[in-house]
Amino acid sequence: MNKSNRLWVILFIIGAVLVAGRMLISQSLIGKAYVQAVPVNADEENEDHKWTLYEQSSQTKFNEAVLEDPNQTKYLFSFSRTIGVWIAALLTIFVLSFLIRDNPLYKFAESIFIGISAAYWMVVGFWSTVVPNLFGKLSPDMVRDWAMPGLGIDERVELMYIVPLVLGLMLLWILSPKGGWISRWPTAFIIGVFCGLRLITFIHADFLSQIRNGIAPLWMVDSSGSFDFWESLRNVFLIIGVLSCLVYFFFSFEHKGIIGKTAKLGIWFMMITFGAAFGYTVMGRIALLAIRLEFLFDDWLWLIDPTGKRLEAVISMLGLF
């Protein structure tokens, strides 16, 4: 066993011991999930049209209900979702283990994720795009009888939608051994259409509207009608900033002399912009880590209980020491 393998085994054992210790302290399984049964009665007459939905619930509700009526069936312990919480927790740890180094656990999580996510998007694409926007347009009656009974009864066949179907088939031609070049047609079509569309919408939405937003008086008066120095200064900075940044993007001249100096000022403005983006982004990223750790500590290890999901005394970190 080489050094790195030994490290992994040690880490694994420490983790397992900690989790086991946590389970001993609480004297019951941690990471349990509870559900609330909601009967659905779609059709009084037909038994086949009755089923039960299970919504997320909490141990608090479960315990309260059991205290009231030990034979209640509304709140239940969910085996499948408990397994789910454990799997989610383990996968979370597997991914985080990459930070120490690449390892088989990460590769395992990665492989699962690639497979699941590719299929996930295919399924979403099929049910939320292909069915309503292709089948639903080409054959509304068929789709209404099959998967979307709520589809408007006035929907009519829109033959225009044969175009994306044909283009799609041309695209898939690439899978055949011969004539793959035909797929260039739909590609050219997409690229052409979107180049045209983006050209015009960018000029309209970003180019013109930003010029428009940039027009503001350099002489600002406040509500009493007197000159407002600070507001005016703000607008002066704004216009200088925009113009100097534009000079930076100028391609026709080398950044020398006065142009070089203005471009430099432009870079300064952009650096402040980047600094702001950096600060805000850091903020967001930390929140993302916080929610993952909260999941581990709250839903899985039951170390904290900020939302009152459990009656059982919560062992806080302070209590442990």
Binding site: Q210, N213, G214, F237, L238, I239, I240, G241, V242, C245, L246, Y248, F249, G266, F269, M270, I272, T273, F274, A276, A277
Partner: peptide
Amino acid sequence: FNTAGNRA
């Protein structure tokens, strides 16, 4: 500053 930079 941020608005000016982003606008450009």
